[in-house]
């Protein structure tokens, strides 16, 4: 296949020959960050799905034994009302003494009535679909409950998991910031590469102008060059990313780690990675065009 000759001898300057490789390294880093974000998202989704949609509220027995059972029932009723009126709660039920007895039977035998024991009252709280300790207002619920039972304790089962999920969210933000920084650095590289190309080919550009070339004609050549560099670098970078991801996936699988699947990435994730070289090429071309048109406008 014959290489189409450009009026401007781009192939001769080292900056132009190096550009695809610089782009490749940047796309590789960005690609890894994106792939990492996808993996984290998969983890977060799985953990989030596993989060209990339920809580338990414990109301400790009053220190004063003499306190009437009636007053205790009153407190429980108030707490139940408070919990039920909290956003995201589907239902809340106090564990009936029947049930309590059944749970304690293996240890206490049939003769003891749990209501005679200084046991905490347990309230089982069901949350609405999709809600868990990580995404409802726990502080609000605690405030409402403790208004009636200051010593009540909320056991939110998997709140540490919820914290993990939000930590993964933060990591994904870091990945996004990293991608933005790499993209910005790449953009600056293209702009400076184009500027050095303009300088290196100054006399050829002047010649083309003297033949009556429009700025657009000259910009198109730089644009095409940047497009090629972006596409080449993008494909190499994404191929390296894919190889790394697949390699890590196999490594994790053979180490018996329970990564979410050995494929690690989903089809849509791969499609997004596949679009990366095209996006890189388009952005590089636009950056080059903008740089050239701006510079040429200042020429005679």
């Amino acid at each position: 296949m014959a290489r189409r000759k450009t009026d401007i001898p781009f192939g001769q300057d080292p900056a132009t020959r190096l550009l695809p490789w610089i782009v490749a390294v940047m796309v590789y880093i960005a690609g890894l960050a994106i792939a990492g974000a996808f993996v984290l998202a998969a983890f977060a989704d799985r953990w989030e799905a596993g989060l209990a949609g339920a809580l338990t509220v414990q109301i400790p027995p009053p220190a004063d034994e003499a306190l009437a059972a009636a007053s205790r029932d009153q407190t429980v009723a108030e707490v139940l009302n408070a919990v039920r009126s909290t956003q995201g709660v589907a239902s809340a039920e106090a564990l009936a003494s029947e049930e309590m007895r059944r749970l304690l039977e293996p240890w206490l035998g049939k003769t003891v009535d749990p209501r005679d024991l200084p046991l905490p009252t347990l309230i089982s709280v069901e949350l609405q679909d999709g809600r868990h300790a990580g995404n409802i207002d726990m502080a609000d619920m605690r405030r409402r409950i403790q208004a009636h039972a200051p010593t009540a304790v909320i056991d939110d089962h998997g709140q540490w998991q919820a914290r993990l999920v939000s930590f993964l969210g933060a990591l994904r933000l870091v990945a996004a910031v990293l991608v933005s920084i790499v993209a910005l650095a790449g953009l600056i590289m293209v702009v400076f590469g184009t500027r050095s190309g303009l300088l290196a080919h100054r006399s050829t550009i002047e010649l083309l102008h003297l033949f009556g070339a429009q700025d657009n004609y000259i910009a198109r050549q730089f644009q095409r060059e940047a497009l090629k560099a972006g596409l080449k670098g993008g494909i190499i970078g994404v191929a390296a990313t894919a190889a790394t991801v697949v390699g890590l996936g196999h490594g994790a699988a053979s180490a018996g780690t329970t990564l979410p699947g050995t494929a690690v990435l989903e089809v849509t994730d791969w499609v997004i990675l596949g679009v990366l070289p095209l996006a890189t090429a388009a952005i590089a071309a636009l950056a080059a065009r903008w740089t050239v048109l701006r510079a040429l406008a200042r020429m005679v």
Binding site: K5, D7, P9, Q12, T204, L207, L210, F211, G212
Partner: peptide, 22 residues
């Protein structure tokens, strides 16, 4: 408007200015 005017002018440069890669 310069390109249109320049296209009406032919120039033989003192140093030719031929492009060596073409």
């Amino acid at each position: 408007d310069l390109p249109a005017l320049r296209r009406k002018i032919g120039v033989v440069f003192q140093d030719f200015r031929l492009l060596n890669h073409l």
